[in-house]
Amino acid sequence: MPTFVYMTRCDGCGQCVDICPSDIMHIDTTIRRAYNIEPNMCWECYSCVKACPHNAIDVRGYADFAPLGHSVRVRRDEEKGVIAWRIIFRNGEKDMNLLAPITTKPWGQCTPKLKDAPAPSKDMRDSQLLFNEPKYIRLDDGGLHTLESNGLKMQAGVCY
C-alpha cells in the first residue's frame, strides 16, 4: 500500500519528508512537490499521511496483491487527542468510521524532566533499582523481586 501524493493538494512543505522512517518521501526538484521515491520500501505505516497538513497523501494498495478501488483515510488530531479512520471497501458495501484516543494528557507536558528530579542516593546507585522504583513496580510499598525474595536459584543443565 505505497503512498502517492495528489498534485493539487501538496504545497511542498516537507512535513512528510521529515517524518518518513524509510526516507522515501522526497520533494521532486522540478515540480517542488513530494512523492514516494521507493514504493517497495514503504510499510504503509501512514506516518506521512498523518503528518501532512493538507491531506495530500493517500495510499493505494500494493500492485502485486491489492486490487484498485478501496480507501483507508485518516485524520489525527493532536489537540483533541483522537484519531479518526474511514475505511471504504472496493465494492462499496462496507463503509466504516472508527475513532480512537491517542493520548489522555496534553502533549508533552506529562513526561518528566529528570535533570530536575532529586538526585539518586548512593544506596540507590548501589542497588538494582531504576528511577521511580521500587514504588512504580507495584504502586505499593513492596520491594524489587530478587532470587532470594522469590526463593529461586540459577542452575545449569537441562530443565523444562
Partner: peptide, 12 residues
Amino acid sequence: TVGQAVLWAATD
C-alpha cells in the same frame, strides 16, 4: 498494521 485494513478493503 494499517496495511492489513487496506488489504481487506481492497479485496472485499
